[in-house]
Each structure stands twice: as C-alpha cells, then as structure tokens.
C-alpha cells in the first residue's frame, strides 16, 4: 500500500516539475516564466521530501524557490522599463526539439537497459544531524573550497558593479 501512495505522490510531483519546466520554456512573458520556474522548484523540493531528505527539501525551497525566484523577479522588475518589454517572442527550434527528444530517448534507453539494480539503501534515511556531521568532517574540504568559490563570485560582482577608477 505504501508503495502505491509513494508512486502516486511521485507521479504528481514529477509531473508538476516537468509541467513547470515546459511552462517556463513556452510562456511568452518572462514574469510568467519566473513563476513557472518557482512552481517547478517547489515540486522538486517535494520530491526530496518523498526521498526522506527533509533538510535538502527545506533548503531547496528556501534557497531556490525563495531566494533565487525572488531574485529573478527583482532583476526583471529592475531591468524592465515598460510592461510590454516583458513579452518576448517564443522561438521554436525544430533542431533543438529533435535533439532534446534524441537525448531524452538515449537517456531513457540507457536507464531502461540498466534495469532496477539499485545500490543497497539504508533502512532509514540519515537525518539532518548526520548530514551536518558528514559535511563538517568527511566533506569539510569541498565545503571550504565552495566558500572560496563564493568569495570569487563576490569579488567579481563588486568588480563589475563598481564605478570608480584606479
């Protein structure tokens, strides 16, 4: 029974995520596109929740659905002069669609051929405390390097936005 419920929830959330992505690509209004992205992000957060990754789900909703989407809306608000500018032409690329379908087909065939061999999963998913411990012990090095990457992003942002001369 639990399997079925999980399956239904997965189908709804995955469908919502794909719908959001398709909606984002096909809408003509960039503000609508930002909201479609938000919808897709929330659906992906739900998928994480289904996988018992509560921390990842919360962070995903906070950062991507919260901060990133709002940032995009702000960028659109600050860069658009008139309401009409938010409407863009929809570019239909047949070649792009063909490539997307071929790639999707290849990925699907590869996963289908691989079958349902999955690595052994633990009984219960590790909780947030275990994640934190791993992050600051075993994965401390990439964690610290990531902070350097963010520092560079900060320096770059300051470099391009500052006006003064040498």
């Amino acid at each position: 029974m639990a399997e079925t419920v999980n399956g239904i929830a997965f189908a709804i959330l995955a469908g919502a995520a794909i719908l959001g992505a398709v909606g984002m690509l096909t809408t003509r209004n960039v503000i609508h596109a930002a909201f479609w992205l938000l919808e897709s992000m929330i659906a992906v957060g739900g998928l994480y929740l289904l996988l018992q990754a509560e921390y990842l789900a919360v962070v995903h909703v906070l950062v991507y659905a919260g901060a990133v989407s709002v940032l995009m809306l702000f960028v659109i608000m600050l860069t658009l002069r008139r309401r009409e500018d938010s409407v863009r032409p929809v570019e239909v690329s047949v070649a792009g669609a063909v490539m997307a379908f071929v790639f999707g087909g290849v990925v699907f065939a590869a996963i289908a051929a691989y079958g349902d061999r999955v690595a052994e999963m633990p009984e219960t998913a590790p909780d947030t405390a275990a994640l934190g411990e791993l992050l600051f012990t075993r994965w401390a090095l990439p964690f610290e390097v990531a902070s350097l990457v963010l520092l560079i992003a900060l320096v770059a942002a300051v470099w391009w936005s500052r006006e003064d001369k040498r």
């Binding site: 994965w139 390097v145 990457v149 770059a156």
Partner: peptide
C-alpha cells in the same frame, strides 16, 4: 567527483572575470 567539480569551478570562475576585465 565532488572535489573535482568544486576545484574545477574554483579554477574557472576567476577566468570569467579575467576575460571581461575591461569593464
């Protein structure tokens, strides 16, 4: 793989700024 990805980003991120250095 994780170290590889994050180190790759650290080594290429500054390149974007250097390439557009003349503001």
């Amino acid at each position: 793989l994780i170290i590889m990805y994050i180190a790759l980003e650290l080594s290429t991120m500054p390149a974007y700024v250097l390439m557009g250095y003349r503001r």
